[in-house]
Amino acid sequence: MTLDFGVVPSYAQLLFTGLLWTIFITVLAGSISILLGIAIATTTLYGPKLASLPVRRITFLFLGTPLLLQLYLLYYGLSQVGVMLPAFWTGVVGLGLHYAAYNADIFRASLHAVDPGQAEAARSLGFSRGATRRLFIMPQAIVTALPQVGNNSIILLKDTAVLSVLGIAELVLNAQRAISETYRPFEFYFTAALLYYVVNLAMEFLLGIAARKAEEIR
């Protein structure tokens, strides 16, 4: 056994570029998952039955099958129906959709948990139904949902690694590029793991601060 981490520094730039893409994908897919999660939650709670039932069913499909399978379906399926989406966007949208299903569950529970008296008070002050939800219910629900949605975003960060399978040049794929030149899989995958761990810790730290702030607001 010979371990030689000496080869890693000469690929530092490649790995760092990969890391930046990983963070960028996390931010993009994370935003999609949060916005779409809110949209799904409000549709299933307030929408007409005609819309809420199919949305519920589709969400269930996303929760019950693996992310990788969903990515393949998007990747191969879209081209079958003639939609040509670059692999990068297929990956970002697929990841965003997957976690939107998870976030929707959390937002739905948080919207449910807002004290009904809040809505009654706003309505009796003359706010419309829509304005009540937008200005009073939603902000409170978002604060309640924050810790769990944050947790999902950390899980999402780790799942961006799966996008390497589609040929998206994030951290894992760039590590693989370095490995194909050096034949040192352990060193590079280990370094990649270390980088993920650092970003993970940073995210946990920031979310901890955000959660405490949210607690203060409440």
């Binding site: 056994m1 010979t2 371990l3 780790k158 799942d159 961006t160 690694a161 799966v162 390497s164 894992v172 490995i179 040192r184 899989p185 352990f186 060193e187 995958y189 280990f190 990649a192 793991a193 993920y196 761990y197 993970n200 810790l201």
Partner: peptide, 23 residues
């Protein structure tokens, strides 16, 4: 902390591709 803080896919690659370096 480490197991939960790193991607399963990378752990899998470390074991499967990196393992042979340790026999």
């Amino acid at each position: 902390s480490v197991m939960r803080g790193t991607p399963l896919l990378v752990q899998l690659f470390i074991v499967f591709f990196g393992g042979p370096q340790f026999g």
